[in-house]
Amino acid sequence: MWVYEKKLLYPVEVSTCNPTLAKYLMEQYGGADGELAAALRYMNQRYTVPDKVIGLLTDISTEEFSHLEMLATMIYKLTKDATPEQLEEAGLGAHFVNHGHSLFYANAAGVPFTATYIQSKGDPIADLYEDIAAEEKARATYQWLIDVSDDPAINDSLRFLRERENIHSLRFREAVELLKDERDRKKIF
């Protein structure tokens, strides 16, 4: 089970009302390499990986949910008091007519989230390599988000999130090394 913590992982701050930036941030909210995809991917893979890496997948997945909440906070604050006209100008007109001011799991282009963004092969190496790739793709996405954002407060949070991808990538690479240690342990002659 999970217990909710009434606080963010990182103190998110937002400088200006900027629905255009909110639209871009949706890539990491409901996009292919976003936080929802990451959280669901690891949480699902953990049931069938070797015991020594279950803890890691569980803990990283849980952290990804806290990243998802950070993204939600940024998107919420960037659009909270925006008028329908402002949302339209920001390219969120179609989003507004469908969802009003609410958030939705869609990418920056408005394409709704789909489970086909994630994989589970039941092969520990295939799964961990997918996870490493996912972290590096998320890192790259954060780079491009920082490139299009001129909100210093948002960029502060984005840099934090980008750095987390570095660490998660490292841990998954270590998980691969831990599995390589299992080689030939049960050799029977």
Binding site: K7, L8, L9, Y10, P11, V53, G55, L56, D59, I60, E63, I167, H168, R171, E174, A175, L178
Partner: peptide, 16 residues
């Protein structure tokens, strides 16, 4: 948040 973050980091580290 700072103290909890240190725990998050050390948990992932000790996992591997």
């Amino acid at each position: 948040q700072q103290m909890d973050f240190v725990v998050v980091e050390l948990t992932l580290y000790t996992d591997t």
